[in-house]
Structures are given as C-alpha cells and as structure tokens.
Simulated assay, not measured.
Amino acid sequence: MDTRKIAVVTGASSGIGAASAKALAAAGFDVVLGARRTERLSEVAAECGGTALPLDVTDEASVAAFVFEIGRCDLLVNNAGGAFGLDTSAEADLDAWQRMYDVNVLGTARITKALLPLLVASGDGQVVTIGSIAARVPYQGGAGYNAAKHAEAAITRVLRIELLGQPVRVCEIDPGMVETEFSLVRFEGDRAKADAVYAGMTPLTAEDVAETVAWVATRPPHVNIDQITVMPRDQIGPGIVHRSAD
C-alpha cells in the first residue's frame, strides 16, 4: 500500500506551482496538481509522476469537482494567483482588480475551506500559501495587487490562529522577484515590458521558491514555519533593486 503523503498544488501548470510539484515529488510526496491549462498540467504531472486534475479556484463547481476526486490531503500549496496591470487607484481597472481579488483571495479561501477537513483528518496537515512581498510592502503601481496579497496574507495568518491546537501547520512564503510568466501575464503578453522587469539583475527562479516549499513541507510535525520572505540578492524591497550597467 502506498503510504506517501498527498500534496495538492494549485496553479501547477507552470512557474512556482509546477516547480513545487516537482520538488515535492522528489521529497517523497504523491502530488495532485490542479490548474486551468489542462494540457500543460498533464505534461508537468507526467514529469513528476503526479495526478493532473482540472481546477479553477475562482469557480465553486470546479473546486467541488476537484476535491471530490481527492480522498486524502496532507499538504495544500496555495499557489494559484496573479497580478493584472499596474493601475493607480485613480485609474483603476476595477474588473482587473476584481480578478486579482477573486483568484488571490477568494480562490485561496475557497480551496482551503474545501480541503481543510481532509487536512485535519490527516493528523499532520499543512497549508503553505505562496504570497508575495507585495503583501508586506506597498509599492507604486501595486495598489490592486497589494490589496489582494495583503488580504491573502491576512487569511493565512488568521488561519494559523484558528487552527491552534489542531494538527495542521500553516506557512506563508513571500517571494520577491521571480522570473516566471508572472510579468508576462501582468503585462498581457508584452514580452518587452516583462523582460524589462528583470533587466540588469538576477531574479529568483521558480525552483528557488520550490526548494523553500519542499523544505517547509518536510520539517518535523512539531515545527511550524510561520512566515518566510525570499528575495534575490539584488533586491531588498519592491522597486529597490540593484541593476548592473551591462
């Protein structure tokens, strides 16, 4: 009988989610991967020996169907999220702000709520939420994303309080600049703008963050890593980046 722990990773079709699924599989977890882009998701699942299931965390029916297929969950990695645009408050595209709130905040709340009974029943459950330094420090152009990530962080930190005395650990991992599809999505496919974000500096990779996820997930049951901030050496905060002249 397979006694491996079950890890569920959302937003696992690319970037930090895909890298985390692979890192957790290498650490001995049986991984269930969820995302909307099912073709890419299946490719990642094949690479790590995991199970791919379609998942849109903003859709209640999708979450219910996803959870129905899962009989056990020891670890939930809340990775699904994203930023859309750099609007000021005065020029806010409220539809984009709503999308950010729906995926980062309500999406995290929805899948966490759905899997919480299984996490508690496991006897050693864990929730790891991939946040952002945007949840810690506001920055110019980040109003909508800052608001969403601050709210997601609040959910995670309150969950830690609510589960005190229960066999579930809760961790928030807040990365700085990571070169994934994040900026490409934020700028609606504008490659030049996305590349400019990382020009002249060395950002984190998805694998850097995934290693952190795997480390947190493999601590002894009595050890809870509450919060971790991970940034590249070239960055000390939002917009505070060393860039070479080359």
Rank of each mutant, 00 (worst) to 15 (best):
K5Y: 04
S13W: 00
S20P: 11
A21W: 01
L33Q: 03
G34N: 01
G34W: 01
G34A: 03
R36M: 03
R37Q: 08
S42G: 04
G49W: 06
T51S: 07
A52F: 01
L53F: 02
V57M: 05
T58P: 08
S62Y: 02
V63R: 05
F66V: 08
I70V: 14
F84C: 05
D87T: 07
D87W: 03
E91Q: 12
D93Y: 05
D95Y: 10
R99F: 10
N104K: 02
L106I: 06
L106F: 09
A114H: 02
A114K: 01
L116V: 02
L119C: 08
Q126D: 13
Q126I: 05
V128R: 07
R136C: 01
R136H: 15
V137L: 07
P138L: 15
Q140E: 15
A143L: 10
A143H: 07
N146H: 15
E152C: 11
A153Q: 15
R157A: 02
V158A: 06
E172Y: 04
I173E: 12
E179M: 14
E179N: 08
T180N: 11
E181P: 09
A192D: 13
A199L: 07
G200M: 05
V216S: 13
T218I: 15
P220Q: 13
V223A: 13
I228C: 00
R233E: 11
D234W: 14
R243Q: 15
D246R: 10
